[in-house]
Design a protein around this nucleic acid. Structure first.
Lengths: 189, 189
DNA sequence: TCATTTGCCTAAGGGCTTTAGGTAGATGCA
DNA sequence: TGCATCTACCTAAAGCCCTTAGGCAAATGA
Protein backbone atom coordinates (compact mmCIF):
# COMPACT_ATOMS: atom_id res chain seq x y z
CA UNK A 1 0.00 0.00 0.00
CA UNK A 2 2.44 2.63 -1.10
CA UNK A 3 1.22 6.06 -0.17
CA UNK A 4 0.84 8.40 -3.07
CA UNK A 5 0.82 11.65 -1.13
CA UNK A 6 -2.59 13.01 -1.95
CA UNK A 7 -3.45 16.49 -0.82
CA UNK A 8 -6.41 18.73 -1.58
CA UNK A 9 -4.03 21.02 -3.42
CA UNK A 10 -2.69 18.28 -5.68
CA UNK A 11 -6.16 16.92 -6.34
CA UNK A 12 -7.53 20.29 -7.35
CA UNK A 13 -4.60 21.00 -9.61
CA UNK A 14 -4.86 17.58 -11.25
CA UNK A 15 -8.62 18.10 -11.56
CA UNK A 16 -8.00 21.35 -13.41
CA UNK A 17 -5.55 19.62 -15.75
CA UNK A 18 -8.05 16.86 -16.32
CA UNK A 19 -10.70 19.46 -17.15
CA UNK A 20 -8.41 20.98 -19.76
CA UNK A 21 -7.88 17.57 -21.31
CA UNK A 22 -11.38 16.09 -21.33
CA UNK A 23 -13.73 18.93 -20.44
CA UNK A 24 -14.88 20.29 -17.12
CA UNK A 25 -18.03 18.23 -16.93
CA UNK A 26 -16.08 15.03 -17.48
CA UNK A 27 -14.18 15.79 -14.30
CA UNK A 28 -15.30 13.17 -11.86
CA UNK A 29 -14.08 11.87 -8.55
CA UNK A 30 -13.61 8.47 -10.17
CA UNK A 31 -11.57 9.80 -13.07
CA UNK A 32 -9.37 11.72 -10.68
CA UNK A 33 -8.82 8.60 -8.55
CA UNK A 34 -7.82 6.67 -11.67
CA UNK A 35 -5.33 9.39 -12.53
CA UNK A 36 -3.61 8.93 -9.15
CA UNK A 37 -3.99 5.15 -9.37
CA UNK A 38 -5.86 5.14 -6.12
CA UNK A 39 -9.28 3.89 -5.01
CA UNK A 40 -12.15 6.34 -5.28
CA UNK A 41 -12.97 6.41 -1.58
CA UNK A 42 -9.48 7.69 -0.81
CA UNK A 43 -10.27 11.07 -2.29
CA UNK A 44 -13.03 11.70 0.19
CA UNK A 45 -10.54 12.49 2.93
CA UNK A 46 -9.30 15.45 0.93
CA UNK A 47 -12.44 16.68 -0.77
CA UNK A 48 -15.96 16.75 0.66
CA UNK A 49 -17.70 15.53 -2.46
CA UNK A 50 -17.94 16.03 -6.19
CA UNK A 51 -19.49 19.47 -5.88
CA UNK A 52 -16.75 20.55 -3.49
CA UNK A 53 -14.09 19.35 -5.93
CA UNK A 54 -15.63 21.31 -8.79
CA UNK A 55 -16.00 24.40 -6.65
CA UNK A 56 -12.33 24.26 -5.72
CA UNK A 57 -11.31 23.90 -9.36
CA UNK A 58 -13.49 26.89 -10.19
CA UNK A 59 -11.85 28.95 -7.45
CA UNK A 60 -8.40 27.99 -8.73
CA UNK A 61 -9.32 29.06 -12.26
CA UNK A 62 -10.74 32.38 -11.07
CA UNK A 63 -7.54 33.07 -9.12
CA UNK A 64 -5.26 32.19 -12.01
CA UNK A 65 -7.30 34.35 -14.33
CA UNK A 66 -7.25 37.28 -11.91
CA UNK A 67 -3.49 36.92 -11.45
CA UNK A 68 -2.89 36.99 -15.17
CA UNK A 69 -5.19 39.97 -15.58
CA UNK A 70 -3.43 41.87 -12.82
CA UNK A 71 -0.08 41.22 -14.49
CA UNK A 72 -1.39 42.34 -17.85
CA UNK A 73 -2.89 45.52 -16.44
CA UNK A 74 0.25 46.68 -14.66
CA UNK A 75 1.52 49.86 -16.27
CA UNK A 76 -1.18 50.09 -18.89
CA UNK A 77 -4.10 52.44 -19.39
CA UNK A 78 -6.79 53.28 -21.91
CA UNK A 79 -7.18 51.11 -24.95
CA UNK A 80 -3.87 49.45 -24.20
CA UNK A 81 -5.25 48.22 -20.89
CA UNK A 82 -8.54 47.22 -22.46
CA UNK A 83 -6.83 45.10 -25.09
CA UNK A 84 -4.42 43.47 -22.68
CA UNK A 85 -7.20 42.60 -20.28
CA UNK A 86 -9.43 41.19 -22.99
CA UNK A 87 -6.59 39.10 -24.38
CA UNK A 88 -5.97 37.57 -20.98
CA UNK A 89 -9.48 36.12 -21.00
CA UNK A 90 -9.34 34.93 -24.56
CA UNK A 91 -5.88 33.42 -24.26
CA UNK A 92 -6.65 31.74 -20.98
CA UNK A 93 -9.78 30.17 -22.45
CA UNK A 94 -7.85 28.88 -25.45
CA UNK A 95 -4.95 27.53 -23.41
CA UNK A 96 -7.16 26.15 -20.65
CA UNK A 97 -10.65 25.46 -21.94
CA UNK A 98 -11.52 23.21 -19.01
CA UNK A 99 -10.35 25.74 -16.44
CA UNK A 100 -12.25 28.47 -18.27
CA UNK A 101 -15.41 26.37 -18.17
CA UNK A 102 -14.76 25.80 -14.48
CA UNK A 103 -14.58 29.53 -13.90
CA UNK A 104 -18.18 29.65 -15.13
CA UNK A 105 -19.31 27.06 -12.59
CA UNK A 106 -22.22 28.34 -10.50
CA UNK A 107 -20.78 28.93 -7.04
CA UNK A 108 -22.84 28.95 -3.89
CA UNK A 109 -22.90 32.39 -2.21
CA UNK A 110 -20.26 31.50 0.35
CA UNK A 111 -17.76 30.27 -2.24
CA UNK A 112 -18.60 33.20 -4.50
CA UNK A 113 -17.78 35.63 -1.70
CA UNK A 114 -14.42 33.95 -1.09
CA UNK A 115 -13.61 33.85 -4.80
CA UNK A 116 -11.52 36.13 -6.96
CA UNK A 117 -14.76 37.41 -8.52
CA UNK A 118 -14.36 40.71 -6.72
CA UNK A 119 -10.87 41.22 -8.12
CA UNK A 120 -12.21 40.77 -11.64
CA UNK A 121 -14.86 43.42 -11.10
CA UNK A 122 -12.30 45.77 -9.57
CA UNK A 123 -9.92 45.39 -12.48
CA UNK A 124 -12.66 46.01 -15.00
CA UNK A 125 -13.48 49.24 -13.16
CA UNK A 126 -9.80 50.14 -13.19
CA UNK A 127 -9.73 49.92 -16.98
CA UNK A 128 -12.64 52.31 -17.18
CA UNK A 129 -10.61 54.94 -15.35
CA UNK A 130 -9.01 55.56 -18.72
CA UNK A 131 -12.41 56.60 -20.05
CA UNK A 132 -14.62 59.38 -18.81
CA UNK A 133 -17.48 57.51 -17.21
CA UNK A 134 -19.26 58.28 -13.96
CA UNK A 135 -21.83 56.18 -12.14
CA UNK A 136 -24.14 54.66 -13.11
CA UNK A 137 -22.65 54.55 -16.59
CA UNK A 138 -19.52 52.97 -15.23
CA UNK A 139 -21.49 50.00 -13.94
CA UNK A 140 -23.29 49.67 -17.24
CA UNK A 141 -19.93 49.67 -18.99
CA UNK A 142 -18.50 47.06 -16.60
CA UNK A 143 -21.40 44.83 -17.47
CA UNK A 144 -20.98 45.45 -21.17
CA UNK A 145 -17.32 44.49 -21.04
CA UNK A 146 -18.09 41.36 -19.05
CA UNK A 147 -20.79 40.40 -21.54
CA UNK A 148 -18.66 40.91 -24.62
CA UNK A 149 -15.59 39.14 -23.28
CA UNK A 150 -17.47 36.20 -21.86
CA UNK A 151 -19.84 35.98 -24.79
CA UNK A 152 -17.16 36.16 -27.45
CA UNK A 153 -14.84 33.73 -25.72
CA UNK A 154 -17.49 31.13 -25.08
CA UNK A 155 -18.91 31.32 -28.59
CA UNK A 156 -15.46 31.08 -30.14
CA UNK A 157 -14.57 28.18 -27.86
CA UNK A 158 -17.84 26.47 -28.73
CA UNK A 159 -16.93 26.69 -32.40
CA UNK A 160 -19.70 29.09 -33.39
CA UNK A 161 -17.27 31.21 -35.39
CA UNK A 162 -15.15 28.48 -36.84
CA UNK A 163 -17.06 27.74 -40.02
CA UNK A 164 -17.09 31.11 -41.68
CA UNK A 165 -14.58 33.62 -42.96
CA UNK A 166 -12.99 35.95 -41.93
CA UNK A 167 -10.71 34.61 -39.21
CA UNK A 168 -11.53 35.15 -35.59
CA UNK A 169 -8.39 37.13 -34.81
CA UNK A 170 -9.50 39.83 -37.20
CA UNK A 171 -12.99 39.93 -35.65
CA UNK A 172 -11.52 40.08 -32.17
CA UNK A 173 -9.40 43.12 -33.04
CA UNK A 174 -12.31 44.90 -34.64
CA UNK A 175 -14.55 44.18 -31.66
CA UNK A 176 -11.95 45.68 -29.34
CA UNK A 177 -11.73 48.72 -31.62
CA UNK A 178 -15.49 49.06 -31.48
CA UNK A 179 -15.56 48.69 -27.69
CA UNK A 180 -12.87 51.31 -27.29
CA UNK A 181 -14.81 53.71 -29.49
CA UNK A 182 -18.00 53.03 -27.56
CA UNK A 183 -16.34 53.72 -24.23
CA UNK A 184 -14.72 56.93 -25.46
CA UNK A 185 -18.05 58.10 -26.75
CA UNK A 186 -20.57 56.60 -24.37
CA UNK A 187 -24.05 57.62 -25.54
CA UNK A 188 -26.31 59.68 -23.26
CA UNK A 189 -29.59 57.97 -22.30
CA UNK B 1 -49.96 -2.38 -18.37
CA UNK B 2 -51.79 0.69 -19.53
CA UNK B 3 -50.05 2.40 -22.43
CA UNK B 4 -49.16 5.97 -21.77
CA UNK B 5 -48.71 7.06 -25.35
CA UNK B 6 -45.04 7.99 -25.42
CA UNK B 7 -43.68 9.62 -28.54
CA UNK B 8 -40.36 11.23 -29.26
CA UNK B 9 -42.19 14.52 -29.61
CA UNK B 10 -43.83 14.30 -26.19
CA UNK B 11 -40.60 13.18 -24.56
CA UNK B 12 -38.62 16.04 -25.98
CA UNK B 13 -41.25 18.58 -25.00
CA UNK B 14 -41.45 17.18 -21.48
CA UNK B 15 -37.66 17.12 -21.33
CA UNK B 16 -37.60 20.80 -22.21
CA UNK B 17 -40.15 21.57 -19.49
CA UNK B 18 -38.11 19.54 -17.04
CA UNK B 19 -35.02 21.52 -18.02
CA UNK B 20 -36.84 24.76 -17.25
CA UNK B 21 -37.84 23.43 -13.86
CA UNK B 22 -34.66 21.80 -12.61
CA UNK B 23 -31.92 22.85 -15.01
CA UNK B 24 -30.77 21.37 -18.29
CA UNK B 25 -28.03 19.23 -16.83
CA UNK B 26 -30.47 17.65 -14.40
CA UNK B 27 -32.41 16.37 -17.40
CA UNK B 28 -31.92 12.66 -17.35
CA UNK B 29 -33.56 9.69 -18.99
CA UNK B 30 -34.50 8.42 -15.53
CA UNK B 31 -36.10 11.67 -14.43
CA UNK B 32 -38.08 11.81 -17.64
CA UNK B 33 -39.29 8.23 -17.16
CA UNK B 34 -40.41 9.11 -13.63
CA UNK B 35 -42.33 12.07 -15.00
CA UNK B 36 -44.31 9.76 -17.29
CA UNK B 37 -44.59 7.11 -14.59
CA UNK B 38 -42.94 4.61 -16.84
CA UNK B 39 -39.87 2.40 -16.57
CA UNK B 40 -36.61 3.84 -17.83
CA UNK B 41 -36.03 1.25 -20.54
CA UNK B 42 -39.30 2.25 -22.20
CA UNK B 43 -37.84 5.55 -23.32
CA UNK B 44 -35.17 3.86 -25.38
CA UNK B 45 -37.66 3.00 -28.12
CA UNK B 46 -38.22 6.71 -28.72
CA UNK B 47 -34.82 8.17 -28.04
CA UNK B 48 -31.43 6.66 -28.90
CA UNK B 49 -29.75 7.61 -25.64
CA UNK B 50 -29.19 10.44 -23.24
CA UNK B 51 -27.10 12.44 -25.69
CA UNK B 52 -29.77 12.07 -28.36
CA UNK B 53 -32.43 13.31 -25.95
CA UNK B 54 -30.40 16.37 -25.06
CA UNK B 55 -29.65 17.09 -28.69
CA UNK B 56 -33.35 16.97 -29.54
CA UNK B 57 -34.17 19.34 -26.68
CA UNK B 58 -31.47 21.69 -27.93
CA UNK B 59 -32.90 21.60 -31.45
CA UNK B 60 -36.37 22.34 -30.10
CA UNK B 61 -35.07 25.34 -28.15
CA UNK B 62 -33.19 26.68 -31.16
CA UNK B 63 -36.35 26.40 -33.29
CA UNK B 64 -38.53 28.10 -30.71
CA UNK B 65 -36.03 30.89 -30.33
CA UNK B 66 -35.75 31.37 -34.08
CA UNK B 67 -39.53 31.43 -34.43
CA UNK B 68 -39.87 34.09 -31.79
CA UNK B 69 -37.08 36.11 -33.33
CA UNK B 70 -38.68 35.92 -36.77
CA UNK B 71 -41.96 37.13 -35.32
CA UNK B 72 -40.27 39.99 -33.52
CA UNK B 73 -38.35 41.07 -36.58
CA UNK B 74 -41.35 41.23 -38.89
CA UNK B 75 -41.97 44.80 -39.95
CA UNK B 76 -39.12 46.28 -37.96
CA UNK B 77 -35.83 47.83 -39.00
CA UNK B 78 -32.87 49.69 -37.55
CA UNK B 79 -32.66 50.10 -33.82
CA UNK B 80 -36.24 48.97 -33.46
CA UNK B 81 -35.31 45.60 -34.97
CA UNK B 82 -32.12 45.40 -32.94
CA UNK B 83 -33.98 45.93 -29.68
CA UNK B 84 -36.80 43.55 -30.52
CA UNK B 85 -34.35 40.83 -31.52
CA UNK B 86 -32.24 41.28 -28.42
CA UNK B 87 -35.29 41.19 -26.18
CA UNK B 88 -36.37 37.91 -27.69
CA UNK B 89 -33.16 36.28 -26.48
CA UNK B 90 -33.27 37.85 -23.05
CA UNK B 91 -36.94 37.14 -22.48
CA UNK B 92 -36.68 33.59 -23.71
CA UNK B 93 -33.78 32.93 -21.37
CA UNK B 94 -35.69 34.35 -18.42
CA UNK B 95 -38.91 32.49 -19.19
CA UNK B 96 -37.16 29.27 -20.16
CA UNK B 97 -33.73 29.06 -18.52
CA UNK B 98 -33.46 25.33 -19.10
CA UNK B 99 -34.35 25.61 -22.78
CA UNK B 100 -31.90 28.49 -23.14
CA UNK B 101 -29.16 26.37 -21.59
CA UNK B 102 -30.14 23.57 -23.96
CA UNK B 103 -29.71 25.91 -26.92
CA UNK B 104 -26.06 26.21 -25.82
CA UNK B 105 -25.56 22.45 -25.89
CA UNK B 106 -22.63 21.46 -28.07
CA UNK B 107 -24.17 19.79 -31.14
CA UNK B 108 -22.33 17.34 -33.32
CA UNK B 109 -21.80 18.67 -36.87
CA UNK B 110 -24.71 16.75 -38.33
CA UNK B 111 -27.21 18.03 -35.77
CA UNK B 112 -25.76 21.52 -36.03
CA UNK B 113 -26.33 21.52 -39.76
CA UNK B 114 -29.95 20.48 -39.30
CA UNK B 115 -30.53 23.03 -36.57
CA UNK B 116 -32.06 26.49 -36.67
CA UNK B 117 -28.57 27.92 -36.17
CA UNK B 118 -28.52 29.14 -39.73
CA UNK B 119 -31.78 31.04 -39.28
CA UNK B 120 -30.30 32.85 -36.31
CA UNK B 121 -27.29 33.95 -38.31
CA UNK B 122 -29.50 35.04 -41.21
CA UNK B 123 -31.72 37.12 -38.97
CA UNK B 124 -28.76 38.81 -37.34
CA UNK B 125 -27.54 39.75 -40.79
CA UNK B 126 -31.01 41.04 -41.64
CA UNK B 127 -30.87 43.43 -38.70
CA UNK B 128 -27.59 44.79 -39.98
CA UNK B 129 -29.27 45.79 -43.24
CA UNK B 130 -30.51 48.77 -41.27
CA UNK B 131 -26.93 49.85 -40.78
CA UNK B 132 -24.37 50.65 -43.41
CA UNK B 133 -21.97 47.75 -43.15
CA UNK B 134 -20.30 45.80 -45.92
CA UNK B 135 -18.25 42.65 -45.68
CA UNK B 136 -16.15 41.81 -43.78
CA UNK B 137 -17.42 44.35 -41.26
CA UNK B 138 -20.85 42.81 -41.41
CA UNK B 139 -19.49 39.49 -40.23
CA UNK B 140 -17.55 41.17 -37.44
CA UNK B 141 -20.76 42.90 -36.39
CA UNK B 142 -22.75 39.66 -36.49
CA UNK B 143 -20.21 38.15 -34.15
CA UNK B 144 -20.28 41.19 -31.86
CA UNK B 145 -24.05 41.01 -31.56
CA UNK B 146 -23.94 37.29 -30.84
CA UNK B 147 -21.29 37.84 -28.20
CA UNK B 148 -23.10 40.63 -26.42
CA UNK B 149 -26.49 38.97 -26.42
CA UNK B 150 -25.24 35.59 -25.36
CA UNK B 151 -22.74 37.01 -22.89
CA UNK B 152 -25.18 39.38 -21.23
CA UNK B 153 -27.98 36.86 -21.02
CA UNK B 154 -25.86 34.11 -19.56
CA UNK B 155 -24.19 36.38 -17.03
CA UNK B 156 -27.54 37.82 -15.95
CA UNK B 157 -29.04 34.34 -15.72
CA UNK B 158 -26.05 33.18 -13.70
CA UNK B 159 -26.67 35.95 -11.22
CA UNK B 160 -23.48 37.88 -11.94
CA UNK B 161 -25.37 41.17 -12.04
CA UNK B 162 -27.83 40.54 -9.29
CA UNK B 163 -25.87 41.82 -6.33
CA UNK B 164 -25.16 45.36 -7.36
CA UNK B 165 -27.13 48.47 -8.26
CA UNK B 166 -28.36 49.70 -10.71
CA UNK B 167 -31.03 47.29 -11.97
CA UNK B 168 -30.34 45.09 -14.94
CA UNK B 169 -33.17 46.51 -17.05
CA UNK B 170 -31.46 49.89 -17.04
CA UNK B 171 -28.13 48.32 -18.02
CA UNK B 172 -29.76 46.31 -20.77
CA UNK B 173 -31.28 49.46 -22.34
CA UNK B 174 -28.01 51.31 -22.17
CA UNK B 175 -26.13 48.42 -23.72
CA UNK B 176 -28.59 48.36 -26.61
CA UNK B 177 -28.14 52.14 -27.01
CA UNK B 178 -24.41 51.64 -27.09
CA UNK B 179 -24.64 48.82 -29.62
CA UNK B 180 -26.87 50.87 -31.86
CA UNK B 181 -24.42 53.76 -31.74
CA UNK B 182 -21.53 51.43 -32.48
CA UNK B 183 -23.26 49.97 -35.51
CA UNK B 184 -24.23 53.38 -36.87
CA UNK B 185 -20.68 54.53 -36.47
CA UNK B 186 -18.60 51.42 -37.08
CA UNK B 187 -14.93 52.36 -36.69
CA UNK B 188 -12.53 51.93 -39.61
CA UNK B 189 -9.65 49.49 -38.94
C1' DT C 1 -61.11 -13.67 -35.18
C1' DC C 2 -56.49 -14.34 -35.48
C1' DA C 3 -51.73 -12.74 -36.91
C1' DT C 4 -48.71 -9.17 -36.55
C1' DT C 5 -46.86 -5.17 -34.86
C1' DT C 6 -45.26 -2.49 -31.16
C1' DG C 7 -45.37 -0.21 -26.62
C1' DC C 8 -43.91 -0.96 -22.20
C1' DC C 9 -41.86 -4.34 -18.96
C1' DT C 10 -38.28 -7.34 -16.36
C1' DA C 11 -33.57 -8.53 -15.93
C1' DA C 12 -28.92 -7.60 -15.85
C1' DG C 13 -24.23 -5.44 -16.45
C1' DG C 14 -21.47 -1.46 -15.76
C1' DG C 15 -20.25 3.30 -14.04
C1' DC C 16 -20.19 7.24 -10.65
C1' DT C 17 -21.11 8.90 -5.68
C1' DT C 18 -20.93 8.57 -0.99
C1' DT C 19 -20.53 6.54 3.73
C1' DA C 20 -18.73 3.21 7.32
C1' DG C 21 -15.31 0.87 9.11
C1' DG C 22 -10.52 -1.62 8.72
C1' DT C 23 -5.27 -1.98 8.12
C1' DA C 24 -0.68 -0.80 7.46
C1' DG C 25 2.76 2.73 6.87
C1' DA C 26 4.39 7.20 8.85
C1' DT C 27 5.23 10.01 12.90
C1' DG C 28 6.70 11.20 17.39
C1' DC C 29 7.86 10.50 22.06
C1' DA C 30 10.40 8.06 25.70
C1' DT D 1 15.43 2.19 19.22
C1' DG D 2 10.77 0.63 20.45
C1' DC D 3 6.14 1.50 20.99
C1' DA D 4 1.81 4.14 20.60
C1' DT D 5 -0.75 6.91 17.85
C1' DC D 6 -2.20 8.90 13.77
C1' DT D 7 -3.69 8.93 9.22
C1' DA D 8 -3.52 7.74 4.38
C1' DC D 9 -5.49 4.58 1.69
C1' DC D 10 -8.32 0.35 1.41
C1' DT D 11 -12.58 -2.94 1.22
C1' DA D 12 -17.47 -3.26 1.37
C1' DA D 13 -21.87 -1.84 0.39
C1' DA D 14 -25.96 0.91 -0.92
C1' DG D 15 -28.08 4.07 -4.16
C1' DC D 16 -28.75 6.16 -8.56
C1' DC D 17 -28.05 6.64 -13.70
C1' DC D 18 -27.27 4.52 -18.52
C1' DT D 19 -27.93 1.03 -21.78
C1' DT D 20 -29.00 -3.46 -24.00
C1' DA D 21 -31.54 -7.94 -24.54
C1' DG D 22 -35.42 -10.31 -24.58
C1' DG D 23 -40.60 -11.02 -23.19
C1' DC D 24 -45.66 -10.18 -22.86
C1' DA D 25 -49.84 -7.96 -23.81
C1' DA D 26 -52.42 -4.27 -26.03
C1' DA D 27 -53.43 -2.28 -30.39
C1' DT D 28 -53.96 -2.85 -35.37
C1' DG D 29 -55.68 -4.70 -39.46
C1' DA D 30 -56.77 -8.42 -42.64
Amino acid sequence: MARVGLTTERLVRAGADLADEVGFDQVTVSALARRFDVKVASLYSHVKNSQDLKTKIALLALEELADRAADALAGRAGKDALTAFANVYRDYAREHPGRYAAAQFRLDPEAAAASAGGRHAQMTRAILRGYDLTEPDQTHAVRLLGSVFHGYVSLELGGSFSHSAPGTQETWSRILDALDATLRNWPAP
